[in-house]
Amino acid sequence: MSAPSDNPLWQASASFELIKLRADTLRAIRAFFDTKNVLEVDTPILSHASITDPFIESFQTRYLPLTKKIHTENFYLHTSPEFPMKRLLASGIGSIFQIAKVFRQGEIGHQHNPEFTLLEWYRLDWDHHQLMKEVEQLLSSLLLPYIDLAETHFLSYKHAFINTLGINPHTAQRKELLVCLNQVGLAGVLDENEDKDRYLELLFSHVIEPTLGIAENNKACLCFLYHYPASQASLARLGNDEGQIVAERFEVFINGMELGNGFHELNNAQEQRQRFVQDNKARKKLGYPQVLIDEYFLASVDALSDCAGVAIGIERLLMVMSQSEHIDKVLAFPFERA
């Protein structure tokens, strides 16, 4: 056994400068929402139920009563504070924000840490277009003291695919997508009988995303991508764009990296339940665990007013501000040191 001082992993991996940058940024975010009368809220990290999305996996833990008997209820650590925040919205609280630590299994890498910080906020009576403007306003004000920004791009998911790959993601058939994957050197990564969305995700993450949020002069810019395929709606409502049914969902990128995801929120409980059930079916097919559907959330969905919400990854934002290549640079103690 070596003395603790011999193990360098006891030390913080972020510099004091970047630990301070986080504190300054959180203070600036709170000041921003204070001027806009958006209320800060706090909701549970531990929950009976969780998100069903097949590609987001929750940490799970068990409640141990004081008798210390083994048999107890299963709890999930939240992957975003979305459900309880919407329950507050449904009860009429008005526009709200939260800065929360969230947890996602397996997500570790240059841009991922299994425990990370989300800034999530909801705007009552707004749609996703109005919210994108506010996201632009907040992110620009936070980033501009640190980096130069070119003019913001607003681009539909469809046009991103047409511009970069020459295909329409909404109408392209399996065969066309496989030919396209072949052309960009990604043949054989996926089987030939997978869900169409898997091909779109592969093309998107490997070919399109690296080009988003970079202006012509190589300068960084914010890039909002909106109107995802209806099959990738998640918790967004469906709308119509140029005669195509799309999800009123957006994501924001900078320097080829995703910073956040937003929805014009679905407020139809029946449709939301169908999507959860569908997710669990997809999970079964993939051999992934089933997730307990959040009945408290579903009970509130029909009472949810028209609103839009977004979640921004704080560590990603700090990485851009400090021009850090690895998320460990902006975390005091990343996963392996936690």
Partner: peptide, 12 residues
């Protein structure tokens, strides 16, 4: 080795 994981979607 780099993990490519969209917020929602398959990881590579």
């Amino acid at each position: 080795n780099e993990v490519v994981k969209p917020g929602k979607g398959q990881a590579f």
